[in-house]
Design a protein around this nucleic acid. Structure first.
Lengths: 254, 254
DNA sequence: CGGGACAATTTGTCCGGACATATTGCGAAC
DNA sequence: GTTCGCAATATGTCCGGACAAATTGTCCCG
Protein backbone atom coordinates (compact mmCIF):
# COMPACT_ATOMS: atom_id res chain seq x y z
CA UNK A 1 0.00 0.00 0.00
CA UNK A 2 2.94 2.28 -0.26
CA UNK A 3 2.19 5.45 -2.17
CA UNK A 4 5.67 5.42 -3.58
CA UNK A 5 5.35 1.98 -5.12
CA UNK A 6 5.18 1.19 -8.78
CA UNK A 7 1.39 1.40 -9.12
CA UNK A 8 1.56 5.13 -8.96
CA UNK A 9 -0.57 7.49 -6.99
CA UNK A 10 -1.18 10.11 -9.69
CA UNK A 11 -3.70 11.90 -7.56
CA UNK A 12 -3.34 15.62 -7.60
CA UNK A 13 0.32 16.50 -7.40
CA UNK A 14 3.75 15.04 -6.83
CA UNK A 15 2.95 15.28 -3.17
CA UNK A 16 5.15 12.59 -1.83
CA UNK A 17 6.42 15.18 0.58
CA UNK A 18 3.06 16.66 1.44
CA UNK A 19 1.60 13.39 2.61
CA UNK A 20 4.34 13.11 5.17
CA UNK A 21 3.66 14.02 8.79
CA UNK A 22 3.51 17.70 9.55
CA UNK A 23 6.51 17.63 11.84
CA UNK A 24 8.61 16.18 9.05
CA UNK A 25 7.58 19.01 6.78
CA UNK A 26 8.37 21.59 9.43
CA UNK A 27 11.71 19.95 10.11
CA UNK A 28 12.52 19.90 6.41
CA UNK A 29 11.75 23.58 6.04
CA UNK A 30 13.86 24.51 9.03
CA UNK A 31 16.73 22.33 7.88
CA UNK A 32 16.60 23.90 4.46
CA UNK A 33 16.62 27.37 6.00
CA UNK A 34 19.65 26.49 8.10
CA UNK A 35 21.67 24.89 5.33
CA UNK A 36 20.71 27.72 2.99
CA UNK A 37 22.35 30.12 5.40
CA UNK A 38 19.25 31.96 6.60
CA UNK A 39 20.44 31.18 10.06
CA UNK A 40 24.13 31.48 10.76
CA UNK A 41 26.09 29.39 13.23
CA UNK A 42 25.10 30.48 16.71
CA UNK A 43 22.00 32.29 15.56
CA UNK A 44 18.85 32.08 17.57
CA UNK A 45 15.98 30.20 15.98
CA UNK A 46 12.40 31.43 16.41
CA UNK A 47 10.79 30.30 19.63
CA UNK A 48 8.42 27.37 19.70
CA UNK A 49 5.35 29.56 19.92
CA UNK A 50 6.58 31.66 17.00
CA UNK A 51 7.06 28.54 14.90
CA UNK A 52 3.62 27.33 15.92
CA UNK A 53 2.08 30.52 14.60
CA UNK A 54 4.13 30.65 11.42
CA UNK A 55 3.37 27.07 10.40
CA UNK A 56 -0.09 26.94 11.84
CA UNK A 57 0.56 23.86 13.93
CA UNK A 58 0.53 22.97 17.60
CA UNK A 59 3.48 23.01 19.90
CA UNK A 60 3.60 19.23 19.80
CA UNK A 61 4.35 19.31 16.09
CA UNK A 62 6.99 22.01 16.43
CA UNK A 63 8.72 20.20 19.27
CA UNK A 64 8.74 16.98 17.28
CA UNK A 65 10.36 18.79 14.36
CA UNK A 66 12.95 20.45 16.58
CA UNK A 67 13.67 17.13 18.21
CA UNK A 68 14.64 15.75 14.82
CA UNK A 69 16.96 18.63 14.05
CA UNK A 70 18.52 18.22 17.47
CA UNK A 71 19.05 14.51 16.84
CA UNK A 72 20.77 15.41 13.59
CA UNK A 73 23.10 17.71 15.45
CA UNK A 74 21.97 20.91 13.77
CA UNK A 75 20.60 22.77 16.76
CA UNK A 76 21.04 22.97 20.50
CA UNK A 77 18.34 23.88 22.96
CA UNK A 78 18.47 25.14 26.51
CA UNK A 79 15.61 25.65 28.86
CA UNK A 80 14.93 29.31 29.40
CA UNK A 81 17.46 30.34 26.83
CA UNK A 82 16.15 29.26 23.46
CA UNK A 83 17.26 27.35 20.42
CA UNK A 84 20.47 28.12 18.59
CA UNK A 85 22.06 26.79 15.44
CA UNK A 86 25.04 24.68 16.42
CA UNK A 87 26.21 22.29 13.77
CA UNK A 88 29.54 21.79 15.48
CA UNK A 89 31.25 23.26 12.44
CA UNK A 90 30.52 20.19 10.37
CA UNK A 91 32.50 20.84 7.25
CA UNK A 92 33.18 17.94 4.96
CA UNK A 93 32.35 15.44 7.64
CA UNK A 94 30.14 12.44 7.13
CA UNK A 95 27.65 12.45 9.94
CA UNK A 96 25.37 9.71 11.05
CA UNK A 97 23.64 10.19 14.31
CA UNK A 98 20.66 7.92 14.24
CA UNK A 99 18.28 8.62 11.41
CA UNK A 100 18.19 9.06 7.70
CA UNK A 101 21.45 10.91 7.60
CA UNK A 102 22.69 8.06 5.51
CA UNK A 103 20.50 9.59 2.85
CA UNK A 104 22.03 13.00 3.32
CA UNK A 105 25.47 11.51 3.02
CA UNK A 106 24.50 9.71 -0.13
CA UNK A 107 22.95 12.86 -1.57
CA UNK A 108 26.26 14.67 -1.27
CA UNK A 109 28.21 12.11 -3.20
CA UNK A 110 27.99 9.98 -6.30
CA UNK A 111 28.07 6.23 -6.49
CA UNK A 112 28.98 4.36 -9.66
CA UNK A 113 28.79 0.62 -9.85
CA UNK A 114 28.41 -2.38 -12.04
CA UNK A 115 26.53 -5.62 -11.53
CA UNK A 116 28.42 -8.89 -11.24
CA UNK A 117 25.46 -11.24 -10.93
CA UNK A 118 24.67 -13.92 -8.41
CA UNK A 119 27.37 -15.28 -6.21
CA UNK A 120 27.62 -17.20 -2.99
CA UNK A 121 29.28 -15.54 -0.04
CA UNK A 122 32.54 -17.06 1.07
CA UNK A 123 32.79 -18.48 4.54
CA UNK A 124 34.94 -15.61 5.72
CA UNK A 125 32.57 -12.99 4.41
CA UNK A 126 29.52 -14.75 5.77
CA UNK A 127 31.11 -15.05 9.17
CA UNK A 128 32.10 -11.39 9.20
CA UNK A 129 28.56 -10.30 8.45
CA UNK A 130 26.83 -12.87 10.55
CA UNK A 131 24.97 -14.63 7.75
CA UNK A 132 24.78 -18.29 7.02
CA UNK A 133 27.57 -19.28 4.68
CA UNK A 134 26.74 -20.36 1.18
CA UNK A 135 23.68 -18.13 0.85
CA UNK A 136 23.32 -16.55 -2.54
CA UNK A 137 23.26 -12.84 -3.18
CA UNK A 138 23.37 -10.49 -6.15
CA UNK A 139 26.76 -8.87 -6.20
CA UNK A 140 27.49 -5.27 -7.20
CA UNK A 141 30.65 -3.25 -6.74
CA UNK A 142 31.54 0.35 -7.27
CA UNK A 143 33.24 3.48 -6.03
CA UNK A 144 31.84 6.53 -4.30
CA UNK A 145 33.19 9.99 -5.05
CA UNK A 146 32.34 13.37 -3.60
CA UNK A 147 32.63 15.08 -6.97
CA UNK A 148 32.39 13.40 -10.39
CA UNK A 149 35.88 12.51 -11.47
CA UNK A 150 37.28 13.36 -8.06
CA UNK A 151 39.14 11.16 -5.66
CA UNK A 152 37.32 8.10 -4.41
CA UNK A 153 36.18 8.18 -0.81
CA UNK A 154 35.01 4.60 -0.75
CA UNK A 155 35.20 1.29 -2.54
CA UNK A 156 32.03 -0.64 -1.93
CA UNK A 157 30.78 -4.17 -2.47
CA UNK A 158 27.02 -4.54 -2.34
CA UNK A 159 25.06 -7.74 -1.90
CA UNK A 160 21.34 -7.66 -2.63
CA UNK A 161 18.74 -10.17 -1.57
CA UNK A 162 18.09 -12.48 -4.56
CA UNK A 163 14.35 -11.98 -4.07
CA UNK A 164 14.91 -8.52 -5.43
CA UNK A 165 16.95 -9.59 -8.44
CA UNK A 166 14.23 -8.48 -10.85
CA UNK A 167 14.71 -4.88 -9.74
CA UNK A 168 18.49 -4.81 -9.91
CA UNK A 169 18.65 -4.03 -13.61
CA UNK A 170 16.61 -0.88 -12.99
CA UNK A 171 19.13 0.46 -10.49
CA UNK A 172 20.89 3.58 -11.63
CA UNK A 173 24.03 5.26 -10.35
CA UNK A 174 23.78 8.72 -8.88
CA UNK A 175 22.74 10.41 -5.73
CA UNK A 176 19.98 8.12 -4.57
CA UNK A 177 20.92 5.20 -2.40
CA UNK A 178 20.43 1.70 -3.71
CA UNK A 179 18.12 0.71 -0.90
CA UNK A 180 15.95 3.73 -1.62
CA UNK A 181 15.62 2.74 -5.25
CA UNK A 182 14.99 -0.87 -4.38
CA UNK A 183 12.40 0.05 -1.79
CA UNK A 184 10.54 2.34 -4.15
CA UNK A 185 10.51 -0.29 -6.90
CA UNK A 186 9.73 -3.34 -4.81
CA UNK A 187 7.49 -1.65 -2.28
CA UNK A 188 9.31 -1.98 1.03
CA UNK A 189 10.86 0.42 3.46
CA UNK A 190 14.16 0.11 5.25
CA UNK A 191 13.51 0.60 8.94
CA UNK A 192 16.70 -0.64 10.51
CA UNK A 193 20.34 -0.28 9.65
CA UNK A 194 23.10 -2.03 11.55
CA UNK A 195 26.70 -1.21 10.93
CA UNK A 196 30.06 -2.34 12.12
CA UNK A 197 33.23 -0.33 11.82
CA UNK A 198 36.71 -1.80 11.86
CA UNK A 199 40.20 -0.80 10.88
CA UNK A 200 41.88 -3.17 8.45
CA UNK A 201 44.78 -3.15 6.04
CA UNK A 202 43.94 -2.35 2.45
CA UNK A 203 43.95 -5.25 0.05
CA UNK A 204 45.46 -5.02 -3.40
CA UNK A 205 42.26 -4.19 -5.19
CA UNK A 206 41.15 -1.61 -2.64
CA UNK A 207 44.55 0.03 -2.56
CA UNK A 208 44.53 0.25 -6.32
CA UNK A 209 41.09 1.79 -6.59
CA UNK A 210 41.64 4.20 -3.74
CA UNK A 211 45.09 5.22 -4.87
CA UNK A 212 46.90 4.29 -1.73
CA UNK A 213 49.64 1.95 -0.64
CA UNK A 214 48.93 -1.70 -0.10
CA UNK A 215 48.33 -2.57 3.53
CA UNK A 216 47.62 1.06 4.36
CA UNK A 217 44.92 1.44 7.01
CA UNK A 218 41.37 1.67 5.76
CA UNK A 219 38.06 2.00 7.54
CA UNK A 220 35.82 -0.92 6.76
CA UNK A 221 32.14 -0.26 7.30
CA UNK A 222 29.69 -3.11 7.01
CA UNK A 223 26.05 -2.14 6.82
CA UNK A 224 23.05 -4.45 6.96
CA UNK A 225 19.73 -3.02 5.81
CA UNK A 226 16.49 -4.58 7.00
CA UNK A 227 12.91 -3.85 6.07
CA UNK A 228 9.74 -3.86 8.17
CA UNK A 229 9.57 -7.62 8.35
CA UNK A 230 13.20 -7.95 9.39
CA UNK A 231 14.23 -9.24 5.99
CA UNK A 232 17.79 -8.41 5.00
CA UNK A 233 17.42 -6.58 1.73
CA UNK A 234 20.98 -5.38 1.24
CA UNK A 235 24.44 -5.68 2.66
CA UNK A 236 27.20 -3.23 1.85
CA UNK A 237 30.89 -3.47 2.66
CA UNK A 238 32.77 -0.24 2.18
CA UNK A 239 36.45 0.55 2.48
CA UNK A 240 37.32 4.17 3.19
CA UNK A 241 40.87 5.51 2.99
CA UNK A 242 42.06 6.25 6.49
CA UNK A 243 43.79 9.46 5.56
CA UNK A 244 40.92 11.01 3.62
CA UNK A 245 37.87 9.91 5.56
CA UNK A 246 36.63 10.69 9.03
CA UNK A 247 33.51 9.23 10.49
CA UNK A 248 31.83 11.80 12.66
CA UNK A 249 29.12 11.43 15.22
CA UNK A 250 27.64 13.28 18.11
CA UNK A 251 25.46 12.47 21.02
CA UNK A 252 23.35 14.84 23.06
CA UNK A 253 21.71 14.77 26.43
CA UNK A 254 23.68 12.19 28.30
CA UNK B 1 25.32 -4.27 35.76
CA UNK B 2 24.01 -0.84 35.26
CA UNK B 3 25.78 1.92 37.09
CA UNK B 4 22.69 4.04 37.54
CA UNK B 5 20.83 1.43 39.52
CA UNK B 6 23.69 1.03 41.95
CA UNK B 7 22.94 4.02 44.15
CA UNK B 8 19.23 3.79 44.32
CA UNK B 9 17.91 5.23 47.53
CA UNK B 10 20.63 5.34 50.16
CA UNK B 11 18.52 7.55 52.33
CA UNK B 12 20.60 10.62 52.97
CA UNK B 13 20.55 11.88 49.45
CA UNK B 14 17.14 13.28 48.60
CA UNK B 15 16.69 10.83 45.77
CA UNK B 16 18.75 11.94 42.82
CA UNK B 17 16.97 9.20 40.93
CA UNK B 18 13.50 9.90 42.19
CA UNK B 19 13.53 13.56 41.30
CA UNK B 20 14.23 12.67 37.72
CA UNK B 21 11.43 12.97 35.17
CA UNK B 22 8.81 10.29 35.28
CA UNK B 23 9.62 9.01 31.82
CA UNK B 24 13.21 8.42 32.86
CA UNK B 25 12.05 6.38 35.82
CA UNK B 26 9.68 4.35 33.66
CA UNK B 27 12.43 3.79 31.09
CA UNK B 28 14.85 2.70 33.81
CA UNK B 29 12.38 0.18 35.19
CA UNK B 30 11.66 -1.26 31.78
CA UNK B 31 15.34 -1.43 30.90
CA UNK B 32 16.07 -3.20 34.14
CA UNK B 33 13.27 -5.68 33.47
CA UNK B 34 14.65 -6.40 30.03
CA UNK B 35 18.27 -6.81 31.06
CA UNK B 36 17.17 -8.90 34.03
CA UNK B 37 15.58 -11.33 31.62
CA UNK B 38 11.95 -10.75 32.50
CA UNK B 39 11.40 -10.20 28.82
CA UNK B 40 13.20 -12.50 26.41
CA UNK B 41 14.42 -11.58 22.97
CA UNK B 42 11.38 -11.23 20.73
CA UNK B 43 8.95 -11.02 23.61
CA UNK B 44 6.06 -8.65 23.46
CA UNK B 45 6.13 -5.75 25.91
CA UNK B 46 2.92 -4.54 27.56
CA UNK B 47 0.96 -2.11 25.44
CA UNK B 48 1.17 1.62 26.03
CA UNK B 49 -2.19 1.74 27.77
CA UNK B 50 -1.18 -1.16 30.01
CA UNK B 51 2.01 0.63 30.98
CA UNK B 52 0.02 3.80 31.62
CA UNK B 53 -2.14 1.97 34.08
CA UNK B 54 0.67 0.07 35.75
CA UNK B 55 2.80 3.16 36.36
CA UNK B 56 -0.04 5.58 36.83
CA UNK B 57 1.13 7.99 34.18
CA UNK B 58 -0.22 9.36 30.94
CA UNK B 59 0.47 8.02 27.50
CA UNK B 60 2.82 10.91 26.85
CA UNK B 61 5.12 9.73 29.62
CA UNK B 62 5.05 6.10 28.50
CA UNK B 63 5.77 7.01 24.91
CA UNK B 64 8.69 9.17 25.99
CA UNK B 65 10.12 6.27 27.98
CA UNK B 66 9.66 3.83 25.10
CA UNK B 67 11.25 6.30 22.74
CA UNK B 68 14.39 6.19 24.86
CA UNK B 69 14.57 2.43 24.87
CA UNK B 70 14.05 2.43 21.12
CA UNK B 71 16.88 4.92 20.68
CA UNK B 72 19.08 2.62 22.73
CA UNK B 73 18.26 -0.24 20.40
CA UNK B 74 16.54 -2.38 23.01
CA UNK B 75 13.06 -2.50 21.53
CA UNK B 76 11.34 -2.29 18.19
CA UNK B 77 7.86 -0.93 17.64
CA UNK B 78 5.38 -1.40 14.82
CA UNK B 79 2.12 0.35 14.38
CA UNK B 80 -0.77 -1.98 14.92
CA UNK B 81 1.49 -4.78 16.03
CA UNK B 82 3.03 -3.80 19.32
CA UNK B 83 6.41 -3.48 20.99
CA UNK B 84 8.90 -6.31 21.05
CA UNK B 85 12.29 -6.76 22.65
CA UNK B 86 14.91 -6.71 19.92
CA UNK B 87 18.41 -5.98 21.08
CA UNK B 88 19.89 -7.22 17.82
CA UNK B 89 21.72 -9.91 19.75
CA UNK B 90 24.20 -7.41 21.09
CA UNK B 91 26.80 -9.66 22.58
CA UNK B 92 30.33 -8.42 23.04
CA UNK B 93 29.75 -5.49 20.78
CA UNK B 94 30.48 -1.91 21.69
CA UNK B 95 27.33 -0.04 20.87
CA UNK B 96 26.76 3.66 20.82
CA UNK B 97 23.54 4.81 19.33
CA UNK B 98 23.05 8.25 20.73
CA UNK B 99 22.81 8.34 24.48
CA UNK B 100 24.60 7.22 27.55
CA UNK B 101 25.65 3.93 26.05
CA UNK B 102 29.16 5.18 26.49
CA UNK B 103 28.51 4.49 30.13
CA UNK B 104 27.39 0.98 29.43
CA UNK B 105 30.53 0.37 27.42
CA UNK B 106 32.67 1.73 30.18
CA UNK B 107 30.84 -0.37 32.76
CA UNK B 108 31.81 -3.53 30.91
CA UNK B 109 35.49 -2.83 30.90
CA UNK B 110 38.25 -1.55 33.12
CA UNK B 111 40.39 1.48 32.56
CA UNK B 112 43.75 1.94 34.25
CA UNK B 113 45.73 5.11 33.86
CA UNK B 114 48.34 7.36 35.28
CA UNK B 115 48.59 11.12 35.40
CA UNK B 116 51.34 12.90 33.52
CA UNK B 117 50.56 16.47 34.56
CA UNK B 118 50.03 19.57 32.55
CA UNK B 119 51.18 19.74 28.99
CA UNK B 120 50.52 21.83 25.95
CA UNK B 121 49.01 20.17 22.92
CA UNK B 122 51.21 19.94 19.90
CA UNK B 123 50.13 21.68 16.73
CA UNK B 124 49.26 18.41 15.05
CA UNK B 125 47.15 17.22 17.93
CA UNK B 126 45.40 20.55 18.30
CA UNK B 127 44.59 20.63 14.62
CA UNK B 128 43.24 17.10 14.67
CA UNK B 129 40.92 17.89 17.52
CA UNK B 130 40.00 21.34 16.39
CA UNK B 131 41.38 23.22 19.38
CA UNK B 132 43.64 26.20 19.39
CA UNK B 133 47.25 25.07 19.50
CA UNK B 134 49.27 25.73 22.60
CA UNK B 135 46.38 25.43 25.00
CA UNK B 136 47.24 23.63 28.21
CA UNK B 137 45.60 20.46 29.40
CA UNK B 138 46.10 17.87 32.11
CA UNK B 139 47.40 14.73 30.47
CA UNK B 140 46.53 11.16 31.45
CA UNK B 141 47.17 7.96 29.62
CA UNK B 142 46.13 4.39 30.15
CA UNK B 143 44.83 1.16 28.73
CA UNK B 144 41.36 -0.32 28.71
CA UNK B 145 40.80 -4.03 29.14
CA UNK B 146 37.66 -6.12 29.08
CA UNK B 147 38.88 -8.34 31.89
CA UNK B 148 41.59 -7.50 34.45
CA UNK B 149 44.88 -8.77 33.11
CA UNK B 150 43.33 -9.54 29.73
CA UNK B 151 44.29 -8.22 26.36
CA UNK B 152 44.04 -4.47 25.88
CA UNK B 153 41.21 -3.25 23.71
CA UNK B 154 42.35 0.34 23.69
CA UNK B 155 45.23 2.65 24.43
CA UNK B 156 43.90 6.02 25.45
CA UNK B 157 45.29 9.49 25.98
CA UNK B 158 43.04 11.77 27.98
CA UNK B 159 43.27 15.54 28.23
CA UNK B 160 41.32 17.27 30.97
CA UNK B 161 40.43 20.93 31.20
CA UNK B 162 42.96 22.58 33.55
CA UNK B 163 40.09 24.25 35.42
CA UNK B 164 39.36 20.77 36.78
CA UNK B 165 42.93 20.02 37.81
CA UNK B 166 41.99 20.03 41.48
CA UNK B 167 39.75 17.02 40.96
CA UNK B 168 42.18 14.96 38.91
CA UNK B 169 43.95 13.49 41.91
CA UNK B 170 40.65 12.07 43.13
CA UNK B 171 40.09 10.14 39.92
CA UNK B 172 40.16 6.41 40.36
CA UNK B 173 40.53 3.63 37.81
CA UNK B 174 37.72 1.18 37.38
CA UNK B 175 34.36 0.92 35.76
CA UNK B 176 33.19 4.50 36.03
CA UNK B 177 34.07 6.88 33.26
CA UNK B 178 36.37 9.77 33.97
CA UNK B 179 33.83 12.36 32.90
CA UNK B 180 31.28 10.85 35.26
CA UNK B 181 33.69 11.13 38.17
CA UNK B 182 34.72 14.63 37.20
CA UNK B 183 31.13 15.73 36.79
CA UNK B 184 30.09 14.34 40.14
CA UNK B 185 33.02 15.99 41.90
CA UNK B 186 32.99 19.35 40.16
CA UNK B 187 29.24 19.63 39.71
CA UNK B 188 28.67 19.62 36.00
CA UNK B 189 26.96 17.34 33.55
CA UNK B 190 28.20 16.19 30.17
CA UNK B 191 25.45 16.90 27.69
CA UNK B 192 27.22 16.56 24.37
CA UNK B 193 29.78 14.13 23.04
CA UNK B 194 31.35 14.48 19.63
CA UNK B 195 33.49 11.79 18.17
CA UNK B 196 35.52 11.20 15.07
CA UNK B 197 36.59 7.80 13.87
CA UNK B 198 39.51 7.21 11.55
CA UNK B 199 41.73 4.37 10.47
CA UNK B 200 45.43 4.99 11.01
CA UNK B 201 48.63 3.02 11.24
CA UNK B 202 49.76 2.11 14.72
CA UNK B 203 52.67 4.05 16.10
CA UNK B 204 55.48 2.42 18.01
CA UNK B 205 54.06 3.04 21.48
CA UNK B 206 50.54 1.96 20.53
CA UNK B 207 51.77 -1.15 18.78
CA UNK B 208 53.81 -2.05 21.82
CA UNK B 209 50.99 -1.59 24.32
CA UNK B 210 48.43 -3.35 22.17
CA UNK B 211 50.72 -6.21 21.25
CA UNK B 212 50.54 -5.75 17.53
CA UNK B 213 52.84 -5.03 14.65
CA UNK B 214 54.00 -1.53 13.99
CA UNK B 215 51.99 0.20 11.26
CA UNK B 216 49.16 -2.28 11.69
CA UNK B 217 45.74 -0.70 11.23
CA UNK B 218 44.14 0.74 14.34
CA UNK B 219 40.84 2.51 14.89
CA UNK B 220 41.43 5.97 16.28
CA UNK B 221 38.47 7.45 18.11
CA UNK B 222 38.62 11.04 19.25
CA UNK B 223 35.95 12.10 21.68
CA UNK B 224 35.22 15.62 22.89
CA UNK B 225 33.05 15.95 25.98
CA UNK B 226 31.18 19.19 26.62
CA UNK B 227 29.09 20.31 29.55
CA UNK B 228 25.92 22.43 29.69
CA UNK B 229 27.75 25.67 28.98
CA UNK B 230 29.62 24.21 26.01
CA UNK B 231 32.86 24.03 27.94
CA UNK B 232 35.17 21.27 26.82
CA UNK B 233 35.83 19.28 29.96
CA UNK B 234 37.67 16.32 28.50
CA UNK B 235 39.20 15.04 25.30
CA UNK B 236 40.08 11.43 24.77
CA UNK B 237 42.05 9.86 21.96
CA UNK B 238 41.79 6.10 21.80
CA UNK B 239 43.54 3.60 19.58
CA UNK B 240 41.76 0.28 19.18
CA UNK B 241 43.37 -2.73 17.52
CA UNK B 242 41.70 -3.29 14.18
CA UNK B 243 41.62 -7.04 14.53
CA UNK B 244 40.14 -7.16 18.03
CA UNK B 245 37.71 -4.31 18.04
CA UNK B 246 34.50 -3.65 16.15
CA UNK B 247 32.49 -0.53 16.53
CA UNK B 248 28.82 -1.37 16.27
CA UNK B 249 25.86 0.86 15.74
CA UNK B 250 22.28 0.70 14.68
CA UNK B 251 19.75 3.11 13.35
CA UNK B 252 16.00 2.73 13.34
CA UNK B 253 13.12 4.31 11.53
CA UNK B 254 14.66 5.62 8.37
C1' DC C 1 28.03 51.78 40.62
C1' DG C 2 27.16 47.04 42.11
C1' DG C 3 24.18 43.57 43.68
C1' DG C 4 20.06 41.31 44.62
C1' DA C 5 15.11 40.70 44.01
C1' DC C 6 11.76 40.27 40.58
C1' DA C 7 9.30 39.54 36.28
C1' DA C 8 9.21 38.09 31.57
C1' DT C 9 10.61 34.70 28.41
C1' DT C 10 11.51 30.08 26.81
C1' DT C 11 11.99 25.28 26.91
C1' DG C 12 10.88 20.96 29.75
C1' DT C 13 7.46 17.94 31.72
C1' DC C 14 2.90 16.05 31.92
C1' DC C 15 -2.00 15.51 31.25
C1' DG C 16 -6.39 14.48 28.68
C1' DG C 17 -8.48 13.70 24.44
C1' DA C 18 -9.21 12.75 19.37
C1' DC C 19 -8.59 10.68 15.04
C1' DA C 20 -5.43 8.13 11.57
C1' DT C 21 -3.26 4.03 10.08
C1' DA C 22 -1.16 -0.50 10.25
C1' DT C 23 -1.79 -5.20 11.98
C1' DT C 24 -4.17 -9.25 13.40
C1' DG C 25 -7.72 -12.41 14.38
C1' DC C 26 -12.17 -14.04 13.46
C1' DG C 27 -16.24 -15.02 11.22
C1' DA C 28 -18.92 -15.05 7.09
C1' DA C 29 -19.20 -16.12 2.41
C1' DC C 30 -17.93 -18.72 -1.44
C1' DG D 1 -11.12 -25.27 3.13
C1' DT D 2 -9.84 -20.97 1.43
C1' DT D 3 -10.54 -16.19 0.91
C1' DC D 4 -12.52 -11.85 1.74
C1' DG D 5 -13.96 -8.32 4.69
C1' DC D 6 -14.73 -6.39 9.06
C1' DA D 7 -13.93 -5.38 13.81
C1' DA D 8 -10.71 -5.12 17.53
C1' DT D 9 -6.25 -3.68 18.80
C1' DA D 10 -1.95 -0.98 19.02
C1' DT D 11 0.97 2.50 17.68
C1' DG D 12 1.41 7.08 15.07
C1' DT D 13 -0.02 11.81 14.58
C1' DC D 14 -1.89 16.01 16.40
C1' DC D 15 -4.35 19.20 19.34
C1' DG D 16 -5.23 22.12 23.51
C1' DG D 17 -3.97 23.20 27.99
C1' DA D 18 -1.31 23.55 32.43
C1' DC D 19 2.47 24.04 35.42
C1' DA D 20 7.73 23.59 36.39
C1' DA D 21 12.32 25.09 35.85
C1' DA D 22 16.10 27.61 33.81
C1' DT D 23 17.62 31.85 31.78
C1' DT D 24 17.86 36.70 31.05
C1' DG D 25 16.94 41.35 31.39
C1' DT D 26 15.23 45.09 34.40
C1' DC D 27 14.62 47.86 38.16
C1' DC D 28 15.10 49.16 42.75
C1' DC D 29 17.99 49.78 46.69
C1' DG D 30 22.10 50.10 49.32
Amino acid sequence: MNASSAEDEPGDLPGRASDQPRYVQVADELRAAITAGHFAEGDQLPTESALCERHGVSRFTVREALRRLQAEGLIRRRRGSGTIVDTGGQVLRQPLSDVAELLQYAAGSTFEFRVHGRIALSEAQAAEIGIGAGSRWVHLSGVRTLAPGGAAVAVTDVYINPDLEAFVSALRPGHETLFQQLGAAAGFRVVRVEQDIRAVAAGGREANLLGMARRAPVLRIIRVYKDESDRIVEISISAHPGDRFTYSMHSDQV
